[in-house]
Design a protein around this nucleic acid. Structure first.
Length: 890
RNA sequence: GGGCGCGUAGCUCAGUGGGAGAGCACUACGUUGACAUCGUAGGGGUCGCUGGUUCAAUCCCAGCCGCGCCCA
């Protein structure tokens, strides 16, 4: 016997363990099945589960469980990401907090990396444990880590291959430099924010004469590295100065005035200072005009110690230097004016400090070349985005892609497989031995090499994830069988970081797209629509919700809210509501159990005879088909909503109520059929709900069988998904039950509006009922009586005196209210109903009277309108009859 | 400046070229041996505004207003 209440906290962990032990999630278990493959977006190894993960993995799990039941050989490939900068940050912070005053540099690279690994060992299990708690049916036996042996080998192979193909190279260019972490970062890791600053107008004297030119800048301190002044070629104010030189204040350096269309005559003074080594635009201007590139900042963004820089500024922090330089310019009369100015300033997304464009040697991937096939693949539809619109975002980025800076001056990550000889010659090889061999060949003798200190951008290894996790560069069976994968489920925030790069790498190395579908889901926000963040303190921890309401409730909530194209504003109330849904299901199962419902081995739904049973069997097929259709289209919310409505609104609210008289009746054959049907439909519900609510459904799957003394062929997780049997739909049964439901609903509404005490049983008379109605009423009078609280159902040609009338499907039903009738209320009700019908009629008549409508609308629409008009008119006539009679009796 | 998206019940949100929906909240009443984490019923909306297309627009198109996000 099922416990009175459902306790997810007890059930969920136990069931997960048993699934994992039985190998239910293992790929290859079902060798005959067509493969279905999803690679998990690898969470940071030292992270913990947040709401975005919960959504992301719930959706993947729904698909995996659905396809597994449908007979596919499912591989949900799990794993974690080493998350270079993020993880290094955490460990550095720990070092700082340990109070031992040892930073990573004091520790040394080897020891520091050892400590990061140690931290990974300690905390690395957290997120995978939490994914299990959520119910994620990953094949954990295949769990990977971006820095494990195999994946590291893949990284080296890709690096070396791209290098040899000329698609990866070392270059001295401006990069986004993070002066806090002392590393280069990619464009994507830079956040531009609007900042209130100033615009300084500085006068640069023109060489040989009294003239001067005023430049406007937001970064006066970089003037130490100015190597030119640019004016627009068409700007007549300055034409005569082009080709001349200015003498840079404070340093006295002599720099040229050049014409370049980069300067905007409308902005500032129309003249700009050019600092090629510290500004991306200036870098380009400098290249076009052959200007020198002079770096004036060190890696900490302090003014360097160099001869050409006045002593007073050497070693100053950039902001301090700005202050001093502005003061000095003012003192010496070079500062013309200072204006408040709002500018876009780049910040490191992790460090939060102002990013400095710096001229450094870095490794770059030729993304422009790699992007071409990746763009084409989406254009051709080899990979489709769902919702479709996201392909625009993808194209936008890919069409404007820049060389990808992949080197990082960090310690935690894949060290770049490049070695340098004494003369700086570079050897790019997969191993140190190969590099040594190459060096020996190059120099004609054994030569000591030093390895490149840098590591690769974390996303470099993530980009290989769909094939590296399957065994590449080895040509494994798994790789052959499961690449390309099926669908990638992810948030839009990493389309650039990850999706685009997987597309490029997948196409380049596997010659095939990594997935046929990219399902982009929403962002989970708090109930006010704010992005959840630690600093705002509005983070809802999915594990708290799981603890409180169960993983099933959280999963169902996320699925039900995962409508395409809109963010999810999560409220606890909603989760609570779906917890109640789980309880409802539990209680429905208890009811079935109490009534000894079970599916006999030879049960054939098609042979069911009773209308109620035939009706629910047809409905069950319909909801099954709808669920499949919705899931195949990634409409999670529709799938969830449809099943919810069926379980609560159809099965519990009506079917279970309708069969109570049958189960308590005398007809044993009918009872047996009804029990079988109930159990059959309940089983169906468990199957349909399993992808969404795996725990409670699995529990009931077993508990119901136990109670009935039957054995299940398998756990629900591996049970076969039903093939829809459309032949079970029975239009007559549908119409009949619909009629019963309408009648009961109408009578209930009437009772409530007429303030009939809940306990009072009334007589119902069907007026002028035809054979069909009479037949239906007689057949179902017990249950109609029960649900509508009737003493009995009779038939008559006219409504009994003093009765109140309603119209159900064209037939007048009279309720003898006797003393309990509230005549005024009843009159009001009838008038309201009539008014509603009149409004409706006016609307339809308006349409039908319109010749254009009759001429142009499709025949079926016209017919439908005519039918509606007739039905409404009939009902209105009966209502007004009833009203007339009522008024007469007053 | 470029791009994407959103404005539907008090709140959170579905949805559709032809009869406005759900959950929560609210109100009233609770009875029938699954369920008070429940049941029954009810109130509540010119579907942001203005035009256009159409026989017909909440839905398609344009403009406007308000809001959000991404990129520069």
């Amino acid at each position: 016997m099922l416990e009175k209440t459902y306790d997810p906290a007890e059930i969920e962990p136990r069931l997960y363990e048993s699934w994992e032990e039985s190998g239910a999630f293992k790929a290859g278990r079902n060798k005959d099945g067509e493969p279905f493959t999803i690679v998990i977006p690898p969470p940071n190894v030292t992270g913990s589960l947040h709401m975005g993960h919960a959504l992301n993995n719930t959706l993947q799990d729904i698909l995996c469980r659905f396809e597994r039941m449908r007979g596919r050989d499912v591989l949900w490939q799990p794993g974690t990401d080493h998350a270079g900068i993020a993880t290094q940050m955490v460990v550095e912070r720990q070092l700082a907090q340990s109070g031992q005053n040892t930073g990573r540099r004091e520790l040394g690279r080897e020891e520091f990396v050892r400590r990061v690994w140690a931290w990974k060992e300690v905390s690395g299990g957290t997120i995978t444990r939490q994914l299990r708690r959520l119910g994620a049916s990953c094949d954990w036996s295949r769990e990977r880590f971006t820095m494990d042996e195999g994946l590291s080998a893949a990284v080296r192979r890709v690096f070396v291959t791209l290098y040899r193909q000329g698609l990866l190279y070392k270059d001295k260019r401006l990069v986004n430099w993070d002066p806090h972490f002392l590393t280069a970062i990619s464009d994507l890791e830079v956040e531009s924010r609007e900042v209130k600053g100033q615009m300084w107008h500085i006068r640069y004297p023109v060489e040989g004469g009294d003239e001067s030119i005023v430049v406007a800048t937001t970064r006066p301190e970089t003037m130490l590295g100015d190597t030119g002044v640019a004016v627009h070629p068409d700007d007549e104010r300055y034409t005569h100065l082009v080709g001349k030189h200015v003498i840079l204040p404070l340093t006295g350096r002599r720099i040229p005035i050049v014409a370049d269309s980069y300067s905007d005559p409308e902005k500032g003074t129309g003249a700009v200072k050019i600092t090629p080594a510290h500004d991306f635009n200036d870098f380009e201007v400098g290249k076009r005009n052959n200007l020198e590139q002079i770096s004036v900042l060190d890696i900490h963004a302090r003014i360097i110690d160099a001869d050409f820089i006045p002593k007073a500024y050497r070693g100053l922090d950039r902001f301090e230097a700005r202050k001093r330089i502005v003061e000095d310019l003012e003192a010496q009369g070079f500062l013309v004016e200072v204006k408040d100015h709002v500018l876009m300033q780049p910040f490191g997304d992790r460090s939060g400090v102002v990013i400095e464009p710096m001229l450094t040697d870095q490794w770059y991937v030729d993304a422009i070349t790699l992007a071409k096939p990746a763009i084409e693949a989406v254009r051709k539809g080899d990979t489709v985005f769902v919702p479709k619109n996201w392909d625009k975002t993808y194209f936008e980025w890919m069409n404007n892609i820049q060389p990808w800076c992949v080197s990082r001056q960090l310690w935690w990550g894949h060290q770049i497989p490049a070695w340098y000889g004494p003369d700086g010659h570079v050897f790019v090889e997969e191993t140190e031995e190969e590099a040594s061999t190459a060096a020996a060949a190059h120099y004609g003798a054994e030569t000591a090499l030093t390895r490149d200190e840098d590591v690769l951008d974390t996303w470099f290894s993530s980009a290989l994830w769909p094939f590296s996790t399957l065994g590449w560069p080895e040509q494994t069976e798994t790789l052959k069988r499961h690449y390309k994968t099926d669908v990638l489920v992810t948030g839009f925030d990493i389309i650039f970081f990850w999706v685009a790069r997987m597309m490029m790498m997948g196409l380049h190395f596997m010659d095939e797209v990594p997935f046929h579908t990219v399902y982009i889901h929403a962002l989970v926000r708090d109930e006010k629509g704010q992005k959840m963040s630690k600093s705002k303190g509005n983070v809802i921890d999915p594990l708290d919700l799981i603890e409180k309401f169960g993983a099933d409730a959280l999963r169902f909530t996320l699925a039900a809210m995962a409508a395409q194209g809109r963010d999810i504003k999560l409220s606890t109330q909603r989760v609570e509501g779906y917890r109640n849904f789980a309880t409802k299901l539990w209680n429905a199962a208890r009811f079935a159990e109490m009534n000894e419902c079970r599916v006999p081995p030879d049960f054939a739904p098609a042979s069911a005879t009773h209308t109620i049973n035939r009706w629910i069997l047809g409905e069950a097929e319909r909801v099954t088909a709808a669920t499949v259709e919705a899931l195949e289209a990634y409409r999670f919310n529709e799938a969830a909503g449809g099943v919810y409505q069926f379980v609560w609104g159809t099965f519990c609210d009506w079917y279970l109520e309708l069969i109570k008289p049958l189960l308590n009746g005398e007809d044993e054959t009918l009872k047996a059929e009804t029990r079988a049907t109930t159990a059959h439909v309940l089983d169906r519900i468990l199957v349909l709900l399993h992808p969404f609510m795996p725990f409670i459904t699995e529990e009931l799957w077993h508990k119901m069988a136990e109670g009935a003394g039957i054995a299940r062929a398998s756990d629900l997780v591996l049970a076969p998904w039903p093939v829809v049997d459309a032949a079970l739909a029975d239009a007559d049964a549908d119409a009949e039950v619909r009629w019963v439901i309408d009648l009961v609903t109408e009578v209930r509404a009437l009772r409530a509006e007429a303030n009939v005490p809940a306990g009072a049983k009334l007589d119902l008379v069907l007026v002028g009922a035809d054979a069909t109605v009479r037949d239906r009423a007689e057949r179902h009078q017990d249950l109609i009586g029960r649900l509508a609280r009737l003493a009995g159902i009779g038939f008559a040609d006219t409504a009994p005196k003093g009765s109140v009338q309603i119209v159900v499907a064209g037939t007048t039903a009279a309720l003898a209210l006797g003393d309990v009738i509230d005549l005024t209320a009843e009159r009001k009700r009838l008038e309201k109903e009539i008014a509603k019908a009149d409004q409706e009629l006016a609307k339809i008549d308006g349409k039908l009277a319109n010749p254009a409508f009759v001429a142009k609308a499709p025949p079926e629409v016209i017919e439908e309108q005519q039918e509606r008009r007739e039905a409404t008119a009939k009902a209105r006539a009966k209502l007004s009859d009833a009203l007339a009679r009522l008024v007469a009796s007053l």
